[in-house]
């Protein structure tokens, strides 16, 4: 059984805040399938560091505004 990742993300919130961007639009801008965006949003897939930066760049925010790792600051 694969352990769930502790990394959380705010992709869904950021999409809504950025003109209700759809998963398909985000996927196209990052260069992945919509299924991959869905898996990342749901925490079922951990993107590479490069893809994480690409997602942050789409939203024009720092990486840790998109992805969080609980425990360090809690």
């Amino acid at each position: 059984m694969v352990k769930p990742t502790r990394v959380t993300n705010r992709i869904r919130v950021l999409r809504v805040e950025h003109g209700e961007m759809t998963q398909a639009e985000l996927a196209e801008r990052v260069g992945v399938t919509r299924q991959t965006v869905i898996a990342i949003e749901q925490g079922r897939y951990s993107p590479s560091l490069e893809m994480a930066f690409q997602i942050a760049r789409v939203f024009k925010v720092p990486l840790d505004d998109v992805f969080q790792y609980p425990g360090d600051t809690d």
Partner: peptide, 16 residues
């Protein structure tokens, strides 16, 4: 990871 905000309409269709 989850949000109470509404999801964009296009996200509700079936995902192939």
């Amino acid at each position: 990871m989850t949000s109470c905000k509404p999801v964009p309409a296009d996200d509700d269709d079936r995902v192939p």
